[in-house]
């Protein structure tokens, strides 16, 4: 009944550093369940992150973990996967880390269709550094750097990933814990670049400034505005206003995976 998360966590690491109600912990639990479902040998599994609250996640997990430079999770993960193609490589991180400073690495890892699983926790803000706006902060919302409202249009991370060439792209929220582990499991099993965007909450640096009354308010927003892709197909654009699609948004099993292509190229060069 009660789930054994403790076997996957480094001894003495709990309680974690995340604020009360921060969704990153819910995502971490989903990731642990997915790794269990896939029976990943932790000695052959690398969890790679950049910098940010979300990027603190690998430090808690009893696996091969890499906490790297800001925005560079995809770059380091690409290196690990190229050197050890037999290893399971999972990236985790935030919207700021993955789409602002790390946007370039993110899109090029997608373009290569390298066999990584990237769990990106989108809490719409730079949480760790006190709430500067990220490329995912909704237009009009408040951040420490947009005191009159954010004038910028937003990145839709999943659409960005599909456009850049990722072959498995899915979205869920911190309020859909069972879907988190289901989608990460599918992502791990997919051969190629898998992006799982988890819409998340940051009560401290985003919620408070934007007059969400509580973390519960933020969680209800995630619950109420999620529309499964199948249901969305029957809805009008007006009905979908302000909603977001959840589930598998894109899946292509045909496109070749990068490490395999590279190995074939290596063989060709050796035989030339």
């Amino acid at each position: 009944m009660a789930y054994d998360y403790e076997s996957s966590i480094r001894p003495g690491k709990l309680p974690h550093i995340w604020c009360p109600g921060c969704g990153h912990g819910i995502v971490m639990k989903g990731l642990i369940r997915a790794m269990d479902t896939c029976e990943l040998d932790r000695k052959n599994t690398a969890i790679v992150s950049g910098i940010g609250c979300a990027s603190r996640l690998p430090g808690y997990l009893d696996a091969c973990t890499l906490h790297t430079a800001h925005g560079r999770a995809a770059a380091f993960a690409t290196g690990v996967k190229m050197a050890k193609p037999g290893m399971n490589v999972i990236c985790v991180g935030g919207d700021g880390d993955g789409t602002a400073i790390g946007g370039n690495h993110f899109i090029h890892a997608c373009r290569r269709n390298i066999d990584l699983t990237y769990v990106i926790m989108n809490n719409y803000i730079y949480g760790m550094t006190g709430g500067q706006f990220s490329p995912c902060t909704p237009t009009g919302m408040l951040a420490s750097t947009t005191p009159y409202g954010n004038p910028d249009p937003v990145f839709d991370i999943s659409k960005l990933a599909i456009g850049a060439g990722a072959t498995f792209v899915a979205r869920t929220t911190a309020m859909h814990p069972r879907q988190i582990d289901k989608l990460i499991t599918q992502g791990i099993k997919h051969k190629g670049m898998a992006i799982i965007e988890v819409l998340d909450d940051c009560p401290t640096s985003y919620g408070r400034r934007n007059k969400f009354r509580s973390v519960i308010d933020m969680m209800k927003r995630l619950k109420d505005n999620a529309v499964p892709v199948k249901a969305a197909a029957k809805m009008t654009p007006e009905q979908l206003e302000g909603k977001f699609l959840t589930g598998v948004l894109y899946h292509d099993t045909e496109l070749p995976e990068y490490c395999e292509q590279y190995e074939a190229l290596t063989k060709k060069a050796q035989n030339a």
């Binding site: 009660a2 789930y3 709990l14 639990k29």
Partner: peptide, 14 residues
Amino acid sequence: CELLCPDFAIKVHD
């Protein structure tokens, strides 16, 4: 409750 607790702080036992 167990699935949504961000802090590994609540467990439901049979």
